[in-house]
């Protein structure tokens, strides 16, 4: 009986010690699995945000860290939508778009809270796509492990304040279903006020000259235009978009983001990004 008691105590102590993992510095990983853009598979991170969202600058830092880690393999898009993106007297900018608001409604993001995001619009459970910024890194890593099922090339020309974008899409594997191509314009380096609650990011409660990155400015259609209902492997699907730039869209700071998604599941197969103007 005494032996059993001693063994039980030892068992409990072993569980205690083996159930704790202490991490020593450095806490952040150095380098990443990004391969300088050579890999075909690219991932879209949509950061749903708003200038009135006090915790969103912290999430934007995570998005930038991930972008630095994965380089061209990761495309970031900041979608300003929902309650915290509304213009107010002290935050007059309106970065909302029709598509951004529709996506926010569909995926239920601001209803669940900001900041939150989507990674390739992959469902984590039936009907649930939402990922907190702490989940983005792991979700991107998992997506990058998957094989690319399509390839996109973008050729942009910008003249007389008009962007003409020629996009070629090619499927690499046989797929069933309907696939759409969504064409977006994002803009970097917009300066404006942003609420903030993280002293390590900037002033609290307001960063007067916050630099907004990857801001979604334009989308061709909410869920994109039909690419094909009948995928043919190896066929080049060509699409052309022309957009007149608004006064506050600075071409040098803008990118075209194009992605192919399954119309039914909304899941994104492939994404590509290219500068509007050098």
């Amino acid at each position: 009986m005494k032996k059993i008691k001693i063994l039980s105590i030892l068992a409990v102590i072993s569980i205690v010690f083996y159930s704790c993992e202490k991490i020593d510095p450095p806490y952040k990983q150095e380098g990443g699995s990004g391969n300088g853009g050579e890999a075909v598979k690219k991932v879209l991170l949509e950061d749903y945000t708003g200038h009135d969202c006090v915790n969103c600058p912290t999430a934007a830092v995570v998005a930038e860290d991930l972008k630095e880690l994965y380089g061209d393999q990761l495309v970031v898009m900041a979608v300003h939508a929902g309650f915290f993106a509304r213009p107010t007297p002290s935050l007059p900018e309106d970065f909302r778009t029709v598509a951004g608001e529709a996506w926010d409604q569909y995926f239920g993001i601001s209803a669940a809270g900001n900041p939150n995001g989507l990674v390739d619009r992959v469902e984590t459970a039936p009907g649930d796509y939402i990922l907190s910024y702490g989940q983005w890194g792991a979700a991107i890593a998992v997506e990058l492990e998957t094989a690319a099922e399509a390839e996109i090339t973008i050729e942009n020309s910008f003249a007389q304040n008009k962007l003409t974008s020629n996009i070629k899409s090619e499927f690499l594997t046989a797929l069933t279903g309907t696939y759409n191509l969504t064409f977006c314009i994002t803009q970097d380096s917009i300066i404006g006020p942003q609420k903030n609650n993280d002293a390590n990011v900037g002033d609290i409660p307001l960063i007067e000259n916050y630099v907004f990155m990857h801001v979604l400015r334009y989308t061709n259609e909410i869920w994109g235009e039909n690419l094909t209902d009948n995928v043919e492997v190896g066929k080049e699907y060509e699409s052309t978009f022309s957009v007149d730039f608004e006064a506050d869209w600075v071409p040098e700071n803008c990118h075209v983001v194009a992605f192919i998604s399954n119309q039914e599941t909304k899941m994104i197969l492939q994404v590509e990004e290219a500068k509007v103007s050098e």
């Binding site: 083996y18 993992e21 202490k22 806490y27 990983q29 991930l66 880690l69 890194g137």
Partner: peptide, 10 residues
């Protein structure tokens, strides 16, 4: 699974 941090599993 996080690519940014070394995280304790237990």
């Amino acid at each position: 699974l996080d690519p940014l941090y070394n995280l304790p599993r237990d």
